[in-house]
Design a protein around this nucleic acid. Structure first.
Lengths: 347, 347
DNA sequence: CTGAAAGCGCTTACAG
DNA sequence: CTGAAAGCGCTTACAG
């Protein structure tokens, strides 16, 4: 990083001089846009190789107005659900020449706003926002306006449930389908009752799963008990653990306990094990999101998996399409089909 | 993203015109560098506020040569060790006006090289690299040269063990201290034998922990058995799980089983539980890295924690210092003092 | 304290 | 197919 090293940086003009052409021709040869004679092209590209030259991104950006950068906001980077979508998304983005900036809103509304602002400032070409405020069932007028403004300014894809409410492109898992898959399987294994819990019901990802389970249970002839609106319930391990402790004080109301995500399910399972119950002989657990990558940290929980590869790809292609269009885009919603991963927390 | 919206973007000239000053004065007023009369300054800043103006980063970068961007390479984003250091680092970086790009090398050597190249291309102001190849005990001449080249070009901090070998700034946890803390505690709880396993011994983070444990065990009068060079051993859950399965086929060689990290320890613990052993009554488990954030997904494993807050901050301040200096920096190594987190996997 | 001017390194109509 | 030239939006010596 010393001055000399920095300033030695080669430019398009150095290449042009050595090749005996103009900088415009070098630019055309490198970008592949516009005509350049085969001879000169080869000559220039050789020089590029020789000096290991790459065009200055900032000069390009300044000129073209594009940054080839995408901002990706998640509420919690440690949550494997978000990490997995990001991971798959990034593969596609980078293979298309985009660099992705991962940002953590910590689930904090103010931080989220600040991040959105800083991405605007950085003039990113696109924004992906996962979960957070956008998942909330009830929204303030002001927040809706904030999101509408940003999505009119910068290509924007939300991975929040029901995000079409904001008039933006949305990609999220089909929870209705997920619940159906899960309950059909449980029924086929001879289970006849299920208890839905965890999560904040003020957020769709919790609310809808419970609602769908309730409805689908009727159709299936399964008894569904829903734990609605328990205070301090959340999407984390602790909620599942504490919730289950309380449930264990009374006779069990169901054969299967379903967390709104795997973190809740794992917490509940641990509480049950601690109480001396056998899983799955005495009690079964299921969850959503498939957070336990086998080689990293398996949960052993039967789970509805979002198919992260399909998910991440869909998010990228959706955003990419919007970035390509010049005109404001039609809002478009894509539902990702989930699949069931069977593990030893159920029969 | 439509053309109109894009081009409406306001510049320093618009502000200058409305304030009746030159663009130079506006620039000075905004950056706070150079003299501007109080009256004009206030007037300009009001306009900035009014139009929600922020200077075009690319024009700034092009002019100044700085990008205010840092590249952060990790081998696996799903590993909570890397995720936690990143998380803490990013807090400091962003509070100093730096944007951090997180990149995943997937532990692949070629990908790592490509990422390094792309960061050079992006002209980031600094690079942090965690683990990966740099952790290897044996290195090719070529790789050493590659790292030396990049660190001479761009401010560079490595979080690999023994990274001072590359002549670059290094920040990593003090494994010697960690082993000492752990074993002293175990001894005080009445444990007299420990079995060290997991990891690839071709990497320092595994090799050194085993070595230190062996040495420190002598001093403490504890029996230390070290599982060296087991093929296919790694830093993941599966290694711990499979490794423990094999160990359980014979009479146990120790009271405590220590994984080179928590993933290994959790895998081993699960194998023991499956075999019907009680933890910690029949067998105890310990690990390193403290990957189980309590509210997210607790491991319940007693662990040597790197103190992520101190770690992340140190990485940033080290990098920041190098970025400030004009001259090539002295290589500097900082060891992070670990602390012990007691959990129910030990007495 | 302030402005005119050069220049950062590209891209892209435009005119040949 | 090619080059001269303008311009993207800033910053910063330089000269007042």
């Amino acid at each position: 990083m010393d001055e000399q090293t920095r300033s030695k940086s080669i430019t398009i003009y150095d290449i042009a001089k050595e090749a005996g052409v103009s900088s415009a021709t070098v630019s055309r040869a490198i970008s592949g846009k516009g005509y350049v004679s085969e001879t000169k092209k080869i000559q220039i590209l050789d020089l590029v190789e020789k000096y290991n030259f790459s065009p200055n991104t900032f000069a390009q950006n300044l000129k073209t107005g594009f940054t080839k950068t995408i901002g990706f906001i998640v509420p919690h980077i440690g949550n494997m659900y978000f990490a997995s979508v990001y991971y798959e998304f990034e593969k596609w983005a980078s293979s298309h020449g985009y660099m992705t900036i991962l940002l953590n809103s910590k689930g904090d509304y103010e931080v989220e706003s600040k991040l959105l602002y800083s991405l605007k400032e950085k003039r990113v070409d696109g924004i992906v926002m996962m979960g957070g405020r956008m998942d909330a069932v009830e929204l303030s007028e002001e927040y809706i306006r904030e999101i509408r403004e940003i999505k009119d300014l910068i290509p924007f894809v939300s991975c929040a449930t029901m995000a079409e409410r904001f008039g933006c492109a949305a990609v999220y898992t089909d929870d209705g389908k997920g619940v159906e898959l899960l309950m059909t399987h449980l029924k086929s294994k001879g289970y006849n009752s299920i208890y839905m819990f965890g999560g904040g019901d003020e957020f769709y990802p919790a609310y809808l799963k419970k609602k769908y389970a309730y409805e689908f249970g009727k159709k299936l002839g399964m008894k569904v008990t829903v734990n609605w609106l328990t205070p301090n319930m959340n999407f984390d391990y602790r909620s599942g653990y504490i919730g289950m402790k309380m449930l264990l004080e009374k006779p069990l109301e169901a054969e299967v306990f379903c967390g709104v995500n795997d973190y809740v399910a794992v917490g509940a399972r641990d509480a049950a094990l601690e109480a001396g119950l056998r899983v799955p002989e005495d009690i079964a657990f299921v969850g959503f999101d498939d957070i336990g990558e086998e080689t990293v940290l398996p949960t052993h929980i039967t789970s509805v998996s979002p198919c992260y590869d399909v998910f991440g790809k869909k998010v990228f292609t959706t955003l990419h399409k919007i970035m390509q269009d010049k005109k404001p885009h039609d809002m478009k919603t894509s539902l990702i089909k989930p699949e069931l991963k069977l593990r030893k927390s159920t029969k």
